[in-house]
Design a protein around this nucleic acid. Structure first.
Lengths: 193, 193
DNA sequence: TCGCTGGCGGACCGATCGGTCCGTTATCCT
DNA sequence: AGGATAACGGACCGATCGGTCCGCCAGCGA
């Protein structure tokens, strides 16, 4: 043997490609562009990721890991297991993510609007994320003592969608503040407390 | 001369191309695909629309006309000029549009997420629409007798964004109903009345 | 009837797409 | 030092991109 085999090359590829995909859109970024940006040979990229779909799926899986990590970091700060506090934390985490300077939208939602008819692995990863997030909200709201849990969950979900969408446009901070405040008011109104 | 020149060919091209762009995404649809779907020669298409950008801009302008028409049809049904009623009509019209079976999202928002860095004519048309809609909401809310018009307008806008986003996914009808109800509640809570 | 003309449809252009392959170089082990 | 090998980097593949051009045919006017 010679040259230790691939130290952190896979991570580097994934990170670089992910940045390009997120910033410019998946379809707008070609494989050659990824290779140029990484500064590696075609061989290396195609051994790690046999096709663009594989690379895109890995990119979305990495986004998922990052989202779960960030979400966990936020929710584990809330003491006890007060569902209302967890809901506020959940929305607060999204608001915090959305106000980061390089935010351009939710990676999964962006992918799904770019490939509305995709049924492959990337679309599965994206749809799973949306389903799981929605389920998390439903589960938390169900533990609340409110008269119409379904309606409240629907409303919070609507606000989350609105936050992701409008934070991608100018006025990000205002959108984040509006969403958090609105969810807080909704929770305050709904729970007798 | 011979053969009367182009009767409704331009409209036919625009309609067909628009349908493809909206359904599958602008980037996913090639000019040859448009030509095949229209069933015309390349000549005809490129005389009406010298480039794809021209065709896309025309498509978005047509969407704008359609939106304005539909919006006007809804708001002119509200008697007098009660701003709260007009706001309800505005959101109701979006909800009605979003529940149409072929709805896949707001054409302008879809375009902007597909081409986040475009500064050309299509992006201008799309951004103008968003700006105008937002301004319309602001103007109506400003005429309301509420303590914090800015906050209410922000909230309604957030809900509109959420409605457009979540109506593009399964559960369209629920999203539309949730958005209209939420806006109604917001207006009821905000106006002393 | 013949010529003119509008439009169809495809050949063609250079560029780029995703993906394969291979020659060269650089590095480490023996 | 020498040989093995991982990775670079680019040539190359067929397909498709947006866009140009032209040959052919259909249909109307003179």
């Amino acid at each position: 043997m010679a040259r230790t085999a691939t130290p952190g090359s896979r991570e580097k590829i994934l990170c670089t490609a992910g940045g390009l995909f997120y910033r410019h859109g998946v379809r707008a970024v070609g494989m050659n562009q990824v290779i140029d940006a990484v500064g590696c040979g075609k061989n290396l990229l195609y051994t790690h990721f046999p096709s663009k779909d594989d690379l895109v799926a890995a990119y979305l899986r990495a986004c998922r890991r990052e989202r779960d990590r960030s979400s966990a970091a936020f929710t584990e700060q809330v003491p006890g297991d007060d569902p209302a506090a967890r809901l506020r934390a959940l929305v607060g985490e999204i608001a915090a993510t959305a106000t980061r300077p390089d935010f351009r939208g939710c990676a999964f939602r962006l992918y799904l609007t770019e490939f509305p008819e995709d049924e492959g692995e990337p679309a599965r990863v994206a749809r799973d994320y949306l389903r799981d997030t929605r389920a998390e909200i439903d589960g938390l709201v169900a533990r609340l003592d409110v008269s119409d849990p379904g309606q409240l969950a629907d409303r919070i979900w609507l606000i989350v969608e609105g936050l992701y969408a409008s934070a991608a446009r100018p006025g990000t901070a205002a959108a984040a503040a509006t969403a958090t405040r609105l969810v807080e008011d909704l929770l305050a109104d709904a729970t007798p407390n």
